[in-house]
């Protein structure tokens, strides 16, 4: 893509002056950014920094108190904050995907792995059992789950497998924007590495746009093109991932980066 074409390119998501308050306490405030197609944005900060609140507001799980979240829908630019619940849900099962930190929140634990992956396909009209099952088996393969586990329930899976299943379930319909909330949280370090590898492969291969919230700098180093650092509900620094991590300007970012290096 030429630079000119890229400059003309419409952001997939534009966030302006977003704020959410809990009583007198700030959840997040003054947040604004553009996310372009194919771009991965990392949001880092300690717990209570407002990063999860921000993600919930972006994904329509929480109503912000102020601000705009403009998404480039198939019908043109729309502010998802003002959207009717119906339209927002339609987005959530077509153009968007949401990977929860705890796979139990994103999976149907009483439904087989195949049924979990097939649900989004069926929601958009797939009505051929054989084809749905083939697609499910294919996706299980892509997230490195053996085909003979297709009829097992997620409760019989390890934590890492559950998380990979959740990713397959989300990506099967080819969403344009994926929200991820601490996708590697709660997993063993070795399992984390494998999951990150897998995620990186899928992001590159599918050209996914994604917003990843995490407290783990290794995750963003590996996956994110750009980075936002949050503290006390505000964005204190943002820029290209390498730039922010290698040459942190804000003292909080410096602390964050140095604390990792010391480990």
């Amino acid at each position: 893509m030429s630079i000119l074409a890229k400059m003309k390119m419409q952001p997939l998501l534009s966030v302006r002056d977003l704020a959410k308050f809990y009583g007198g306490r700030i959840g997040c405030a003054d947040v604004g950014f553009d996310l372009y197609p194919g771009e991965v944005l990392g949001i880092v900060g300690e717990s209570g920094s407002g990063k999860s609140t921000l993600l919930s507001c972006l994904a329509g799980h929480l109503a912000p108190d102020r601000g705009e979240v403009i998404f480039d829908t198939k019908e043109g630019l729309r502010d998802t904050v003002l959207m009717a619940e119906a339209a927002r849900r339609r987005l959530a099962r077509t153009d968007w995907a949401y990977v929860h930190q705890n796979p139990r929140d994103g999976l149907r634990m009483g439904v087989s792995a195949g049924g979990n992956v097939g649900e989004r396909l069926m929601a958009v009209g797939a009505r051929h059992y054989g084809q749905i099952r083939d697609a499910a088996v294919d996706w299980l393969g892509r997230v490195e789950i053996a085909a003979d586990r297709v009829d097992d329930r997620p409760s019989a899976f390890s934590g890492g497998m559950q998380q990979r299943l959740q990713i397959a379930r989300n990506l099967v319909t080819g969403p344009r924007l994926v929200f991820m909330d601490e996708p590697t949280g709660g997993l063993d370090v070795s399992v984390q590495a494998r999951l990150l590898d897998l995620l990186r492969g899928l992001v590159r291969e599918m050209g996914l746009s994604a917003i990843i919230v995490t407290h783990d700098l290794a995750v963003v180093r590996l996956l994110a093109d750009r980075l936002m650092v949050m503290k006390g509900g505000y964005v204190v620094e943002q820029g290209l991932t390498d730039q922010v991590l290698d040459d942190p300007q804000h003292e909080y970012t410096q602390l964050l980066v140095s604390s990792v290096l010391q480990v």
Binding site: V111, G115, E119, M122, A123, V124, Y129, D151
Partner: peptide, 12 residues
């Protein structure tokens, strides 16, 4: 979609 998930589970 959920309605068909139930039928899918039956068949599987």
């Amino acid at each position: 979609g959920l309605m068909h998930v139930k039928l899918y589970e039956d068949i599987s």
